[in-house]
Amino acid sequence: MVSIDFDATSAPELMPMLRSVLRQAFAKDVKVIMLGHIAIGLPLGHTALEEVAAEHDAEYGVDYVNLGYRPGYIAVMIAMGREIEDIFRTDYQGTPIRDMEITRDVHSYADIDLLFGFEHGAVIDYWVRYAQARFHQKMTFGTTAVMAPDAYPYLQAGQIEGLGTRGMPAQQWGHLLVIGFIVLGNLGYYFTKGKRKRSGETA
């Protein structure tokens, strides 16, 4: 599950990360369910999703889906721990989630192997405090450099699995970031591999 919790103000930092994580996911046949808590940034995530999905001939509703946005992120996060359909009855286009192969049997965090959040603000705190603590969802985050120092305590306490930042000041180093994220993506993949096999490839 990928959460878009940033907007255009952080796009130069987070979009390359998002793309490389999505590429990793599609290359490894990991299913992608996208949603987002920053409404004004969600279309950025959607654009990246469609773009990367096209590169890998991924099929909508089978390999990936975009649930869209719902207001009130605290409530959304907790309610998803019980039944995702209560909040996201349909995807962003109004297709019922029970009519799509990818989400047919997805009910709660128990059916999600890894949440990968892209964060530029306080939403990361809500994810950890409201969803991770209560439902023990595995989480990894890509954050802006501004947010990264604040997120270190979560990593050290083992509340989150991984943390990635760009933090490099120029475009020419972009490729280094991609390498970094490929490593990180692989680590995330490695940690969830066993679980994914059991629950049928959903992330």
Binding site: A75, V76, A79
Partner: peptide, 15 residues
Amino acid sequence: QRLLVWYAIVAGFTM
């Protein structure tokens, strides 16, 4: 769960 769903609905209106 019901209160949470209602909260989400009402939160939209605050925008």
